[in-house]
Design a protein around this nucleic acid. Structure first.
Lengths: 341, 341
DNA sequence: TATAATTTCGAAAACGTTTCCGTATTTAAA
DNA sequence: TTTAAATACGGAAACGTTTTCGAAATTATA
């Protein structure tokens, strides 16, 4: 491992004290322009790189933000992180990224590890197993900057970024009804999740306002293995109460539905219409038939999370992150899977 | 922000010196079992969390590994990172993740930032623009632990993890030929990339061994926007030299091909057969027709990268990372897109 | 019993920054 | 001309660990 010069050596080379060099590099007003020039040019010549740990130790901040999310293999989360990175990188921040794999125990472990100050803030989307949120409240109670996105904890008084889950789901369901559906299924992740609650509520209200009543056997909760999901959906599709429409509150289950349909002789959209929350637009257009989607503004959500945190972390005397829910609307794109025939 | 006790305060509480407490917590042989118990239990009681920066500064290591890759929105890279995380997490390492967005300037910036020791090692897959590799050689020359995967730099003498690109491409092309294709196109990312070179070579050799000759107009290089790719492929499909088979060396271009085909009346596999390097298996089976794939062992590649680095970083006197290319075979799964008709 | 070895712990240095404090020199104000 | 303020820098402490060195107390050896 190579050394590289440190501040003391750089100072010796310049015949200046370390304090002066440090101040010169940090553009302090106490240093003359002349010596600043000298210091900067020598620093470049010797390729001086400040030690981030010494700096973190002294300043008590790491210039690092942690992202904790349930999975990586999802275009939604990938885009959110891209959005976060876009703004944090401009401010010289680094990103620690963790996947909980939908496992609350892993989530707890990660959060507890992060409590030691390795990161200056956390942006988080909870696992589908997370119902006990004591590890997160503890974090927040300690004054640790924390924002949520998508899968939020409503009870923790901090800033949360979501899409208009209720309205999108309502509109999506309404769209199915307008296209003639009368028995509409709802596919979801764990019922604990904020997003499923909201989307479920939107779905129910849309049914109600159309005079339709929900059918419990048409409400499917996500299992861990894809194959199980496919079979559960297939069974529903072949059951007595078979639906003529599906609202999927999560990308994964829309794909599982297409798999399930492939194993039957059901035709989309003739026998079954489907709309889904979905982020991978390229794929949505490629499915047969192409899928009507509710697209969440993933990149923007990431950007907004990051902006909020950067402001909190870089401005001098910022108040706590306000207890508010910021909603960025989704966009419904109608494709073939919901065309009335 | 909350404090939490530090070592000195913990020591004061125990009426011991900081050095003793430190040694007790690190299970040093110099400390009696009795005081170890006391220290550990008090540490738990006060929820003592060692400051990672003080530790990093003192020990000159960060327990952090950086991952630098060209994009996040790819199931291949997502799976690789999952694999890396799987083993690093077990050893208490953290992951800094960076996306270059296929931009070599961003890649350089990131690599230069990492030179200051924020991470103990880097696992890297270069951008498609990367031809000048001086930023990477400099890193390696300084003795910085560095491994490559997938898109490697052959000229940097360190460990690289790839799949059997040449053979897979050869076999994939051969498969098309066996299914009756005679004019086979090749879709690729930048020609600079190790993977395209190898896969292209496999493709060419397969053509040659079948007595076929390559047609330059059937070799398409990836552009930045998806739409451009789709149009380029569509133009090729409608040109005079239209192919009856396609080998796509990258997932993105297989999807672009399906988009392009949708805009013509060409039928897969009747008029055109296609095979592609592809990681998103669920999607591959859902495309119409389902796509014959060459699946890289993404998760394993990630695991192996991490294992190699962990060994280097945790064992006491390890030699430099050996200059070798480790290949983990891909798996070809034949689906409908290459069925002879 | 005297000496050597072992066990168990403490004091202090070190890691590389930033910043508080002090001070010499120069410039402005009285 | 005398005093006050501004400018430009150095010395040293501090951040929270780990570890080197040393030493006291205990145990084993001669």
């Amino acid at each position: 491992m190579s050394a590289g010069v440190n501040l003391k050596e750089l100072a010796a080379e310049l015949k200046l004290s370390p304090s002066t060099v440090s101040r010169a590099l940090n553009d302090s007003y106490e240093i003359s322009e002349e010596t600043k020039k000298k210091v900067v040019s020598m620093a470049e010549k010797l390729n001086y790189q400040p030690n981030p740990f010494a700096r973190s130790l002294r300043e008590n901040k790491s210039k690092t933000i942690a992202v904790v999310m349930p999975e990586r293999m999802s275009s939604f989360f990938a885009k959110v992180i891209d959005g976060i990175e876009e703004v944090t990188q401009q401010h010289g921040y680094h990103l620690l990224v963790y996947s909980t794999h939908e496992d609350v125990e892993r989530e707890k472990k990660i959060v507890n590890l992060l409590m030691n100050g390795r990161a200056d803030a956390i942006v988080m989307s909870v696992s589908s197993q997370t119902s006990d949120i004591s590890h997160l409240t503890r974090l927040h109670d300690r004054g640790f900057p924390l924002v949520f996105f998508d899968r939020i904890c409503p009870d923790i008084p901090t800033t949360k970024f979501i899409t208009n889950d209720y309205e999108s789901s309502f509109e999506g369901t309404k769209h199915l009804i307008q296209q003639g559906c009368r028995k509409i299924a709802f596919l979801m992740l764990s019922k604990e999740l904020s997003i499923t609650k909201e989307r479920y509520r939107g779905y129910l209200d849309a049914l109600k306002s159309a005079g339709l009543s929900p059918e419990p056997s048409l409400h499917i909760t996500c299992a861990h293995e894809e194959e199980k999901n496919i079979e559960a959906i297939r069974n529903m599709l072949l059951s007595k109460e078979r639906p003529d429409g599906i609202v999927s509150s999560v990308e994964k289950l829309a794909l599982a539905t297409y798999h399930a349909v492939k194993r039957t002789d059901i035709k989309i959209p003739e026998d079954l219409k489907i709309i889904s929350f979905f982020s991978n637009l390229s794929i949505a257009g490629l499915l047969t038939p192409s899928l009507t989607t509710i697209t969440q503004p993933a990149f923007s959500i990431g950007e907004e999370c990051a902006k909020m945190l950067i402001k909190k972390l870089t401005k001098p005397r910022q108040p706590d992150l306000p207890n508010q829910v910021i909603s960025i609307p989704s966009k419904i794109t109608i494709r073939s899977s919901t065309i009335a025939v």
